[in-house]
Amino acid sequence: MYQASETINHKVETKMTENPLPGKRKSQLVDRNVRETVGQAKVPNFRMRCENVNVYYQFGEKKAINNVTLDIGKNEVIAMIGPSGCGKSTFIRCLNRMNDTIEGCRVEGTILLDDTDIYDKKIDVVPLRARIGMVFQKPNPFPKSIYDNIAYGPKIHGLVQNRQETDELVEQSLKRAGLWNEVKDRLTQPGTGLSGGQQQRLCIARTIAVNPEVILMDEPCSALDPIATAVIEDLIDELKKEYSIAIVTHSMQQASRVSQRTAFFHMGDLIEIGPTDQIFLSPLHQLTNDYITGRFG
C-alpha cells in the first residue's frame, strides 16, 4: 500500500520537475523505470561477492531482494542507502546467513567470501558468523552483565584463555566502541539497563570483540548522538584498515563520510552502485538522484 502510493507520487513529481539537477539534463539520467543496476557492481579485489541474489520471505510468497549483484572490496567500507523497507537489512543479513533463522526465508544466488560460497551445503555457519560479525538495527544486548556481553563471543570461540586476557579484551573493545568511560564502573550490571545509544555501542563492542574479518552494520548510529556517532565513525575508519565493512545508513552525510562506495536500493532492486562521491555528486540514475536530493524516501 505504502509503496504503491509512493510510486504515484513519483509520477506526479516527475511531471512537475523538468530538470532535477541544475547543470544536468534529464536525458543524461537513466530513466526511473529501468530496474537494472547502474554503475560498477564488481571490483577486482573483492572480499565478498554477491551474484544474482534473490531473497524471498513467507515461503516464496514475498520477494524482498531482486537479482542483486554486488561486491565488497578488501579494506573497503560500503554504504547501503535507500528508502525504508527497500531491503537493505534483508540484503545485509544474507551476508552472514542471518536470514537462515527466519522461517520461510529463502536466499537464491551465490555469495562468496573470498573464494568460498557461504551458502554451500558444506559450510558451517558457526565459524562463518565468527568471521562475519554483525551489528543489528535494533540494539540487542544479552540480558547479562555488560562484561559478559562482551566476553561471551571470545569465550565460546576460545579467543581468550584466562580471566586477565578476557579483562583486557573487554576493556579494549569497550574503549574502541567509545563506551568504556561510561560503563567502566558498572561492568557487572546488566547490559539491558543501559540507554538505547549505550546499548547500541555495547553491541558494536561485542561484535568487534570477536575480531571478525567482515563487519556488517545495520544502522549502527541510528540511536546515537553526534559525539558518539563520531566515535563510531572513527572506529569504522580504523577498522577498515584490516577489515571490510558494510554499513546500512539513513544518513547521507554519514555515508559520504565513512564509505568508499555506496549502493542505492529501491524496492528490492539495487538501482545504482558506485564510488560514494559519484553517487552523491553526480548519480547516474533518476531514482538515485531523486533520493539524494530528498524528493522521496
Binding site: 542471518m98 533463522t101 558468523r129 554483525m134 563471543g153 570477536v210
Partner: peptide, 23 residues
C-alpha cells in the same frame, strides 16, 4: 524469548546449541 536475543547469540558465532543453552 525475543528473536533479537537469538540473533545476537548467532551473530557473535554461537552454535545453535550454545544459543539455546546459554541464552
Amino acid at each position: 524469548v525475543p528473536p533479537s536475543i537469538r540473533e545476537a547469540a548467532l551473530g557473535v558465532g554461537a552454535s545453535k546449541t550454545q544459543m539455546v543453552a546459554h541464552h
